[in-house]
């Protein structure tokens, strides 16, 4: 059941990202505007080089856009060529990130990887320990809590990465091809997980994917081509 409310998790308007200059100038994202509501899961599809990952990097405050405006959870974070917030703090409090590779810290156990996200945000160890176990249980990997990432399967690693992304109750989860390294069965399971997270945790989720077989799990699909959003399907 969706817990979606009307507050948008993300609003972006007129985003443009240009790499290089002069003869080497490449417009990776051109005048993109979009909105993702809390509790909504949105797929971002398109051919390679369409600018999906760059758009995700802009939305995740990993790279600054050249122009445009980004509002996260009703806070203006980028406007008029200027970053308006402490990006590092904003990322740890409002964002969850999941990538093609789980990118877990190799010397920390699954539980510690989840706890780390909370302890970075100065949450007490007692609370972070309990929430990490709750999240791992929620995502079905509680029995692997004390295992290092090297002892987990690809699917389990991604579940732990999702748990880490959820740790600080983010407004927005951005995921860049999170199922690319998984087989179709595990890939679909992870996508189902994102849907569950969006609806049950009331977070906006935007997922870049090439996997068209799982598009039925998304509330909305945005198609991107040549740096621009072309179509939107419900």
């Amino acid at each position: 059941m969706s817990l979606s409310n009307n507050n948008p998790a993300l609003q972006a308007a007129g985003l443009t990202k240009i790499y290089g200059s002069g003869h080497t100038e490449v417009v990776a994202v051109r005048d993109v505007s979009l909105s993702v509501a809390r509790g909504e899961i949105v797929a971002l599809v398109g051919p390679s080089g369409a600018g999906k990952s760059t758009l995700l990097a802009l939305l995740g405050l990993i790279r600054p856009p050249n122009t445009g405006r980004i509002i996260i959870d009703e806070t203006v974070v980028f406007d008029n060529h200027q970053v308006k917030v402490n990006v590092r703090r904003f990322r740890r409090q409002k964002f969850g990130f999941v990538f093609q590779k789980a990118n877990l810290i190799p010397f920390l156990t699954a539980a510690e990887n989840v706890r780390l996200a909370m302890e970075i945000d100065d949450q007490p160890a007692r609370i972070s320990r309990r929430r990490a176990m709750e999240l791992l249980e929620y995502l079905g990997v509680a029995e692997r809590a004390e295992n290092l990432p090297s002892m987990l399967s690809g699917g389990e690693e991604q579940r732990v990465a999702v748990a880490r992304a959820l740790a600080n109750r983010p407004s927005l989860i951005v995921a860049d091809e999170p199922t690319a390294a998984l087989d179709s069965v595990h890939g679909r399971q992870v996508m189902e997980l994102f849907r569950k997270v969006a609806h049950e945790q009331n977070a906006g989720v935007i997922v870049v994917t090439h996997d068209h077989r799982a598009l039925d799990l998304f509330d909305r699909t945005l198609e991107m081509e040549d740096g621009q959003l072309r179509k939107s399907h419900n």
Partner: peptide, 16 residues
């Protein structure tokens, strides 16, 4: 370095 980049991405402070 990759882990440090990841730590920065999830918002770790420089002091950490």
């Amino acid at each position: 370095l990759h882990d440090i980049a990841m730590l920065k991405l999830i918002g770790a402070k420089n002091s950490l």
